[in-house]
Design a protein around this nucleic acid. Structure first.
Lengths: 235, 235
DNA sequence: CGAAAGGTTGAAACTTCTCAAGCAGGGTGG
DNA sequence: CCACCCTGCTTGAGAAGTTTCAACCTTTCG
């Protein structure tokens, strides 16, 4: 996740010509349906991995009582693997997505042939863990307003690092429900937080698009440091 | 982290004879000092990794205001890498530990020589991410009592999977302060939670040791499933 | 146009935190 | 050897943040 994989994608592109099964997953426009309709059910497809080529997706865990915790977003370029041992986790789309699937057996063969691939996958996984740590800290230690602001900073920064242009504003197909599930807050509270952030002229999130007047101010407010994302340009 | 590395440790053992610098880090008995005294400061030693051979350690992030969030515990056999891009993270001991340090340059050389190492490191990193996801869900979606119970289940299960014998009770050098920092609760609340768990005869945590009358009952209460730890025997 | 999903608002309840004070025990110095 | 001190644990009470419930509004989509 997290790390931009332009270079890596080229590699995967090379691989996909021979090994990958590229599938267009045209999910419904309705976000909720799209999110509920998972594209990688672990119990069914744990032997597959995928790369997000376009669109926005997320990983989430569903509890028996229906509660959901989103544990990460996936932007174009992100690699995502099935969790063989965690059937309660799913991968779902938040918008129309183009996704390249990759059979895990094929991946194993590729790693044998190209040793650098497994090293890159290690990097990928470490980057994902770095993001998870930040989410943990964010949910664990920050109050609601900064928590939401921080998540928005991360999403925008990662989108900006992929193919999306996030200057001042862009499409962000995330509903308040999904924001709530990602930040471990209730939807009602998310709503109040967003209106406060809007009143404070920090960020406006409406109609599936986001407007940030002053990204620097938002980052400062959220105490957001992008080093953990290990973006090429952040160095 | 998370995954038992008995087999892997043998490999590291082989490596350490030639490449690793094995250092005994005898931290003070006082837990707090030990925890505060980090053993891998990112700004200083980001080019080093290590393997915990014995004892209990943790990773944590410190905020400017002194708040701390523990993002993971390390039990014997766990591999731990420096975070070059996240200087606010540290690695600290919770008890006397024996730690093998490994220079990252040496590690890179080893990976060139033994391609399977990088694949194993990928596995390691994926296992760490799996644990982080569970922590995220735990902190995000579970009420305080179950949250603490869940963490205790994880710690005991992982310790049981390393060299420690956890039948009914064992040493657990974790203070209430550290539990609070790991579960994103206040120490006062941790105290009340622990006394409730004790009253309900689920778990007793006193004097640096833990007593569990009925582990199955505790796991059921915490809704703990150990599949994500990918223990050899859990299959 | 109607239905369904998501967004908005208010009020009450609940969980958790903060502040504050006191207790317990282990290690250290007199 | 004892007293002291420091750290961690315990307890109470009030405050704060967040959730829940419920109703209503708005937008989207068929």
């Amino acid at each position: 996740m997290a790390v931009r994989f332009v270079r890596k994608l080229e590699k995967y592109g090379r691989l996909s010509k021979t090994e990958c099964q590229v599938i267009v997953d045209v999910s419904q426009n309705t976000r909720k349906i799209a999110a509920r309709k998972s594209i990688l059910h672990e119990d069914e497809n744990s032997q597959k991995s995928c790369v997000i080529l376009s669109g926005l997706a997320c990983r989430y865990k569903i509890f028996e009582d229906g509660a959901r915790q989103i544990v990460g977003f996936l932007v174009p370029g992100d690699f995502c693997e099935g969790y063989a041992h965690q059937p309660e986790y799913h991968l779902g789309t938040l918008s129309q997505c183009l996704i390249a699937y990759l059979d895990n057996d094929a991946l194993a063969g590729i790693m044998d042939e190209y040793p650098r691939i497994s090293r890159n996958l290690w990097r990928t996984s470490k980057a994902e863990a770095a993001v998870l740590r930040e989410w943990l800290v964010n949910i664990g230690r920050r109050p609601a307003d900064k928590r939401v602001a921080y998540l928005i900073c991360e999403l925008c920064t990662r989108l900006d690092g992929s193919d999306v242009d996030v200057a001042g504003g862009c499409a962000l197909p995330v509903s308040q429900i999904e924001l709530a599930d990602a930040t471990a807050l209730s939807t009602v509270h998310i709503n109040r937080v967003l209106s406060r952030l809007r009143d404070n002229k920090l960020v406006t999130l409406q109609r599936r698009s986001i407007t940030i007047k002053d990204l620097g101010r938002l980052k400062a407010y959220a105490q957001f440091q992008d080093a953990y994302l290990q973006l090429p340009k952040s160095a």
